[in-house]
Amino acid sequence: MKKNDEKEKQLESLPPMGFQVIVREFLKDKVAIASLIIVIICLLVAFVGSLFIDQVSLMKVDILNKYANPSDLHWLGTDVSGKDVFGQLIVGARNSILIGFSITIITSIIGVSFGIISGYYGGVIDNILMRFVDFVMVLPTQMLIIVFVTIIPKYTIFNFVAIMSAFYWVGKARLFRSKTLSEGRRDYVSASKTLGTSSFKIMFREIMPNLSTLIITNLTINFAANIGIETGLSFLGFGLPPNVPSLGTLISFARTSDVLANKTWVWLPASLFILIMMLSINYIGQALGRSSDAKQRLG
């Protein structure tokens, strides 16, 4: 019994493991916890609420209810076509979040992989990959996205995600390439090469974990940014198809002075939703970055 008690005391005296350090440091930040709760509530409202909404009936035009004021039947009133704004807010939030998340994951996988491979090998491989990245970067991305969205007949959310993902990974590739160049000169990489460890294991099991702080921060900040990009394109009329609800579509009604000043129920809830989501996600990303830095300081 005494030996077991001594072992338990020794385990308790050991420094916390990596993930435990991140959680512990994150929980110290009360604003980050509040931001996380807000994001969870927004996600639950968007994804659970949309399960109870029939999108086909939601998008039916009812011209007799054009710009109806908020009431028991329409909690946030209706838009210019008589469609319920509250239902469009819930379904549109789900669509915008799904698009932002999908683009973030796809571009992160491509960008991080490109950057680590390029920075690790260097030389000819680095030159070839970086010249391709430079070529994509100099392209007029916004104009090309608008062109592709315009020429694709009956495009869907999947088409939109694919088009956006094809251009928004290059910044990540350059960022992680520069960080990998510095990591590749460290002793643990040289030791692994000497021991005969495969390049794949060195890149993705040794170097990439040491970039976790940058990956986490970049991932969360880009998630918020990608939601904003989709919203901006939808506002300009080059986002999702007209029959698919979007936060940007609701905000686009504010282009007329009458709606902007007198019919705030159409565009203001969507604007507030985006603002709150972006601020909360950005603060969570910064808090996770600080927590990861604490983990690396403690080893």
Rank of each mutant, 00 (worst) to 15 (best):
Y120A: 05
M143H: 02
S71N: 06
I116A: 08
Y121M: 06
D84G: 02
C42Q: 08
I63F: 13
L139P: 03
V80Y: 14
V80Q: 15
M59G: 06
Y120N: 06
C42L: 07
M59V: 15
I128T: 11
A32E: 02
D62H: 12
S35A: 11
S108L: 09
G122A: 07
K83N: 11
S81Q: 15
I106D: 04
L98I: 06
T107V: 14
I53N: 08
S113V: 05
S81L: 14
G49H: 05
I53F: 00
R94S: 08
V80K: 10
I38E: 10
D72P: 05
I41M: 04
L36T: 06
P140Y: 03
Q88C: 03
V61S: 14
M143W: 01
L98V: 10
I40L: 12
I128S: 05
F86P: 15
G87R: 10
T141F: 00
S118A: 11
I90R: 02
S118R: 00
I63T: 14
D62T: 12
I99N: 01
Q88H: 09
V48W: 09
L144H: 00
V124H: 01
V136T: 09
M143K: 13
I145V: 11
G77I: 05
G49K: 06
I145N: 00
A93W: 13
V61A: 11
L89D: 15
L76Q: 10
I105T: 10
L98R: 03
L144T: 07
V138C: 04
V91A: 05
K83H: 14
I37G: 10
N65E: 13
A93M: 07
V61Y: 10
F148M: 12
A32D: 01
M137K: 02
Q142M: 12
I146F: 11
N127H: 12
S81T: 13
L98P: 02
D84N: 02
S57E: 15
G111D: 05
G82H: 12
G111N: 10
D126H: 15
F148A: 12
M137S: 09
I145L: 13
G100I: 09
I116V: 14
F52Y: 07
S102Y: 01
D72C: 07
L129Y: 07
I109W: 07
M143V: 12
I53A: 01
N95E: 03
I128Y: 11
A32S: 04
L64V: 08
G87M: 06
W75T: 05
A68K: 11
G115R: 03
V136E: 14
Y120V: 09
I99F: 06
N95A: 13
N127R: 14
D54F: 09
G123V: 08
N69R: 05
F47G: 02
D134T: 05
R131F: 15
G100N: 13
A46F: 00
L98E: 14
F47E: 01
L43H: 03
D84R: 00
A93T: 14
I117S: 03
V61N: 13
T104L: 01
S108M: 13
S35K: 02
L58Q: 01
V80G: 09
L129K: 02
I97H: 09
A32H: 03
G100A: 06
V124W: 13
V112L: 08
I117Y: 02
L44N: 02
I116N: 12
V138T: 13
I38M: 08
C42R: 00
M59P: 03
I63K: 14
G123D: 08
G111W: 00
L51V: 10
I125G: 03
I145A: 04
T78I: 07
